[in-house]
Design a protein around this nucleic acid. Structure first.
Length: 161
DNA sequence: GCGACGATTGGCT
DNA sequence: GCCAATCGTCGCC
């Protein structure tokens, strides 16, 4: 949840410093500084000069690892998200990293902010769900690593597995 | 200081 | 299915 708006995370991808496709592969830089900071914080970056994408920073010991949030199932603040996105279909609100960033009004100011206090709010899953994995999307390196995870059968994935 | 490129999306062919 | 939009960062001159 971000600023009281959000839903259930249904798709994510993992990246670490040893991964050629990761922003942290080349070592610490100004852009990826948050990924080398405290775990449990946000890493926000701009993609293709247009889209804002949200990551969760992981790994206290070996810095430079995180999880890209690729899609959520919109639950709270549907009206707000639809206005931000300019669409009227729930299935189009958050089915991709850039869409998610726009729907949740992710801005670069959130980079490095803790995920356990406002504007963020994390709520543990209420039930166990089937999680499946597969190749990642939209990258040109290490494409074969099966580090993409998602809820089995969810209608809100950016793409089917 | 300058040029190349990307963890994407949306519109057109 | 393919391609352009768009700009901050990085790497090299």
């Amino acid at each position: 949840m971000v600023n009281g708006v959000g839903g259930i995370i249904v798709e994510a991808e993992a990246y670490d410093q040893l991964d050629p496709a990761s922003h942290t592969f080349v070592g610490p830089t100004k852009r990826n500084a948050a990924m080398f900071g405290a775990p449990g914080c946000a890493y926000v970056y701009r993609s293709y000069g247009i889209h804002w994408c949200l990551n969760f920073v992981c790994e206290a010991e070996r810095h430079g690892a995180g999880v890209l949030i690729r899609a959520i199932e919109p639950i709270v603040g549907l009206q707000t998200m639809m206005e931000r996105r300019g669409v009227d279909k729930i299935g189009l609100l958050c089915s991709g990293p850039g869409k998610l960033g726009q729907a949740l009004a992710i801005v670069h100011d959130y980079n490095g902010m803790p995920l356990n206090k406002p504007p963020f709010e994390l709520i543990p899953a209420k039930k166990y769900v089937d999680v499946i994995c597969g190749p990642r999307i939209g990258i040109s390196k290490a494409v074969d690593l099966p580090w993409r995870f998602g809820l089995s059968g969810s209608a809100f994935l950016s793409r089917s597995f």
